[in-house]
């Protein structure tokens, strides 16, 4: 167990270091950062001033270690565009993105788990086919377009839900639904295949032989075993959802981290872009790490291998 833990932690740490380097290298892609910041209508003197002001005249290696050193303690510097510290900017907006992600995951699980179970119990029957067709349709849905269609339908024509902003819980219903759409097919398929495997296992036959009720067999025995891969994929999907929130937050004008990222990319505000890339990568790594740990606790077989 301890060895598994140590190995997994080491990988997570290495991933963080890799992403740190990647996030730094990313902003140096254009060649000269000072020219990108200054914009197309700047003179050579402007560029020189910017280069000095942001410390871009120093050797790249020095800039890198300086950035990494500060990032380690949560200091991502000053935003070029917003007159604030990057850490504060992100801190202010993170709650909205996390709320959105959790609402999305909640909706996705509420829809995907029952559908997956029904699909598994009726394997090969018409209802199973209909459900897998719906999953395929959901997978093909462009999220930003679905957001706009929902806005027209529920916001404009029916007037049930607010179109943009973050004031009340109703504001999160449409964006949460759109975000959930992207996760439902994967969650549903995994629940289905997990349940199909579980239902044909020996312990289910034993439970049946003992004369347990069908509901008890499905809920207490099969579902519990099918849940483990679903926990892992739910963590992965939450990570993807936080990354995907950039599109949905822009569509619904939710001022979360995704919207901030889009704004800073279009304003050439690189310290903020770097920080958001790093933050999302670390959240994803922690989520998958947590899911692996949880699975190891739940399933002793994993620890052994």
């Amino acid at each position: 167990m301890l060895q598994f833990l140590a190995r997994r932690l080491l990988v997570a740490l290495l991933v963080c270091i890799t992403v740190l380097t990647f996030a730094f290298a990313l902003t140096r892609l254009s060649g000269d950062l000072a020219i990108s910041i200054a914009g197309p209508n700047s003179t050579a003197a402007d560029i020189e001033i910017i280069r000095k002001a942001y410390g871009l005249d120093r050797p790249v290696i020095q800039q890198f270690f300086d950035w990494v050193g500060r990032a380690m303690v949560g200091d991502f510097g000053q935003s070029y565009f917003f007159r604030e510290r990057v850490a504060k900017l992100i801190g202010d907006r993170l709650p909205i993105t996390l709320t959105l992600g959790l609402v999305g995951l909640g909706i996705a699980l509420t829809v995907a788990l029952p559908l997956g179970v029904i699909s598994a119990l009726r394997e090969g029957r018409p209802i199973d086919r209909v459900i897998s067709l719906v999953a395929l349709l959901g997978q093909a849905m462009p999220s930003f377009w679905l957001g706009l269609v929902l806005m027209i339908t529920f916001g404009l024509h029916l007037g049930w839900l607010p179109i943009s902003g973050t004031g009340t819980w109703q504001h999160f219903v449409m964006p949460g639904t759109v975000l959930a759409f992207s996760a439902i097919p994967a969650l549903m398929r995994l629940t289905r295949s997990g349940m199909i495997d579980a239902m044909s296992a020996d312990y289910i036959r034993t439970a049946r032989a003992k004369g347990l009720s069908r509901a008890s067999i499905i809920l207490k025995h099969a579902a519990r075993n099918a849940a483990m891969p679903v926990v892992s994929i739910a963590a992965v999907q939450l990570g993807f959802m936080l990354g995907g929130s950039i599109v949905i937050e822009t569509v619904f004008a939710l001022h979360g981290v995704g919207f901030l990222a889009w704004e800073s990319i279009s304003k050439n505000d690189f310290p903020t872009v770097q920080a958001v890339v790093l933050l999302l990568a670390i959240i994803y790594t922690l989520l998958t790490l947590g899911a692996d740990m949880l699975n190891a606790v739940l399933d002793p077989r994993l620890r052994a291998s």
Partner: peptide, 23 residues
């Protein structure tokens, strides 16, 4: 395997947007 793990942790849309914006 490590390269695959590291790639998965990188937020896809965000990085794609940043690259297109820079290049």
């Amino acid at each position: 395997l490590f390269i695959i793990t590291a790639r998965l942790s990188i937020p896809l849309i965000l990085v794609a947007l940043a690259v297109v914006s820079l290049v």
